[in-house]
Each structure stands twice: as C-alpha cells, then as structure tokens.
Design a binder for these strands. Structure first.
Lengths: 226, 226
DNA sequence: GTCTATACGGCGATAGAC
DNA sequence: GTCTATCGCCGTATAGAC
C-alpha cells in the first residue's frame, strides 16, 4: 500500500491518521532496544550506537525510522504514557468512592512504574528544561486542558463531600493531588537517590512499594482527616 | 604561597587539606555562571561555551580551573550540598521534639530548594545513572554511613516513643522518612511536571510551598496517627 | 593568570550505493 | 530497507603569546 522508498516517518504520519497497523519488525526492535538503553543510561548519556547494536541493526536505520534520538525518546515516552495517563484520568473522573479512586490510581501508577521505569525519570529529567516538548507530548496522549479541569473538579467535589460529612478537613484539590503524586511517584523517580542517600537497597524499595499499595490510600486520607 | 604557574586543580587539592581560603574572583565567577547555565539547560545540554560567555571569560579558563564539565557540575553540587545535608542530619539527630525536627527540616529543605533549584534536579537526573559518582560526592559532604545510621536510629527512637505514648501508630523510620522526603522534595524536583501536567503556575507552586512550611509537619504526623 | 589558536576524538545526522 | 562512508558539532586538551 505504501511505497517502500518513502521515509518511514512520512508513512507513519499517514498511518497515524488512518488506523493502519504498523509493521512490527525492525522498527519495533529499535524501539525496544532504545527503551532498554534509555533506562540504563538516561537519554542524554545513551549512545545511538549502543541502541543500534542492541537492536542488531545499523546506526543509520535509527535515522531512517525515527530521524533523531529525540524522536526516538518521544516514541518511547508516548508508548508508555498512553498506557498510564488516560486510565489515570478516567479513574479520577469515575463515579467511584474517593478511597476506591485512590486505590486504583496507586495500582495504576505502581504497575506502570514497575513495568516501565523509563517514564518518571524521563518526564522529571529529560523534559525538565523543555516545557514545550512536554506539552506537545502530553497533548498527543490526552486532551490536557479538558482532562485537567475534569480531574480537578471531580476530586474537589469528592473532597468537599468528605468534608461536609466530617471525614476530612476542608482541602484544596491541588494540595491533595500534589501530596498524592509526591507519595506515589517520588519513591520511583528518586529510587537512586533513596538508595545512596538512605542506603535503601532494592529489597527495601520493594517493601516500601508494597506498603504504598496496601496503606498509602488510607494514610493519605488520614493525613487530611479533621 | 602557591606557585602561580601550578594548575589550579592541584592547588585546590592542597588547599582542601589545609583550610586555605580559595581565591574568589574568576574561579567563583565561573562557578556562578555554571550554576545558572546548568539550572537553565540541564548539565547534559549545557554548552561550555555558554558558561564561558556567561562568566565573561574564555573557554580555556574553564579547563584551567575545573578541567572538565563534569568536575564543574560536581563543584556546583558540592557547594549546595554542603549547605543542606549536614544541617539536615544535625536536625534529625538533635534532642528536639519530633515535631520541631520536622518543622526545621522542612524549613531547611524549602530554603535550600528556593535558593538553589539546581540541587534536586541534579541529584535525581544527572546522577541517576551513575551511583558511584553520587556516592563519591556524598562522601565529600558527609560521613554517609555514620550519618545514615544515626539519623535513622534517632528517628526510629522518636517514632517508638510517640507510638508508646499513643500519639502515632507503630511506624518504620524508613517509611516515615521516605514519606517526608517525597512530600518535601518532589514538588520542587517535579515542578515542571506539575506545571504542565496539572497546570500549576509559579503562583500556585508558591502557595503549595507556603502550605508545606505551615502544614506539612502536622499533616505528616496526622498521616501516621493511630 | 588570561588569552588566541588549534588539534583530536566521540557522536548525531545524513548522503548515496545497493 | 539496509548498509558504508562522511560531514559537522562539541567537549577536551594543549601549545604558546602576553
């Protein structure tokens, strides 16, 4: 259907508007290799040669499929983000009780960070100095403004209801949300820091992750109790 | 006292063993410029030419004083870390009541992160994939193992005492410490993420910082209350 | 101490052959 | 689609004038 001499990024632009399934051979191998190397080295320190070696192809093929290391990093991010952000937003705007929302959100975040350690580090580090790029990537995954408004509005309604019932203090949704994200994301994003700074090894970090799955929702609710 | 033809990094090695005050002219200007450029671009994306321009000196002088970009980044880190980590450890091993310790620690962390946005990002991002370097740098600032043990032991004693008095649930020091660091550090380290993801502007982040200074200690204690 | 000038090597990007 | 060869940028390093 597509001429074999067309650069792949042009084919991809057409396919992305037509739901044509991608060819999952060399292109996917490069993406998998890139994810592994990015996780191992960080994007900045990753060498395209190492990615090519790990994928078993030539360095020039990376350019053929993705045109630049930056695009390759974006593709890795998007693949992971599509599996995390939409379900996360859907959870918070669902009709579930607040405690159930928190439990599901923690489950989503924990599973995503375990399956894909790339995501938190990439967002916090590589995109730190390029807000425009982060904005562009997020808009490829979510209707950001709409999702923000709906999520914050739904959470504020939950918090107001809990406050009216005397189960929580009056609380701003932003405050609660930042506390939630801090407790859920930081231990993954900063695992190296915790390892060196506090001497927490992989086993200790696993225990903490288990604690979060079991206790974080109730701990957070207790933190904002009257 | 030192020959003016000796490379500065050798002079520095001698001075660091003798408490000789550094010359605070060109060398300090380079350090200040490097800090600004590193904060603006991230270390990996920072160009040594931009640092030299910003310091008003030639690129060769960077090599004369610091030998490499990595050494320059280390120097920026050490300057900031010396002002944060030792007082932080001292606070936790002091004889103050737990609530006072938390209030002081939050004050220290907030002041440090405000005065020096370089630190959390540098540790979480640039040192993420180089544990050996982080370890080496920390040992230049603190007796890491000793400090870790004393801090965790002191905190565990506090938590046990509070639990015995019925004011807290039985709590592991590691769990409490990670929760504290998450809530105190993440909003700074991930400010760009919060900005784009949740639409929090600088004013909103300032309000959250004010909230943490005023409320975080009690919120954290409430989170681990019976 | 500070500068100009220059060289080397690594790496990302790219052209062109097949 | 895949490869070889090459270009250009940048960090590092050094020589040498003042």
């Amino acid at each position: 259907m597509f001429g074999t001499l067309l650069p792949v990024w042009i084919i991809r632009m057409v396919k992305s508007q037509k739901n044509v399934p991608d060819d999952r051979s060399t292109e996917a191998q490069i993406l998998d290799a890139a994810r592994r190397v990015f996780v191992r080295r960080g994007v900045a320190a990753a060498r395209t040669q190492e990615i090519a070696d790990e994928a078993g192809v030539n360095k020039a093929l990376l350019h053929y499929y993705y045109r630049s290391k930056e695009n390759l990093a974006d593709a890795v991010f998007l693949e992971a983000a599509r599996h995390l952000f939409p379900p996360m937003v859907a959870t918070f705007v669902s009709g579930l009780p607040l405690r159930e929302k928190l439990l599901r959100a923690i489950q989503l975040q924990t599973d995503a960070a375990t399956a894909n350690p790339f995501l938190p580090g990439f967002v916090m580090c590589e995109l730190r100095t390029d807000a425009a790029r982060l904005t562009r990537l997020l808009h490829a995954v979510l209707p950001v403004e709409t999702a923000q408004q709906q999520l914050v509005a739904a959470l504020q309604a939950d918090l107001d209801a809990e406050a009216a019932a005397g189960r929580l203090r009056p609380t701003q949704a932003e405050t609660f949300l930042v506390a939630f994200l801090s407790l859920a994301v930081f231990p993954f994003a900063g695992s190296h820091m915790l390892n060196t700074l506090l001497g927490l090894d992989a086993a200790a970090l696993d225990r903490l992750a288990a604690w979060r799955r079991a206790e974080l929702a109730d701990t957070l609710l207790r933190a904002f109790a009257p």
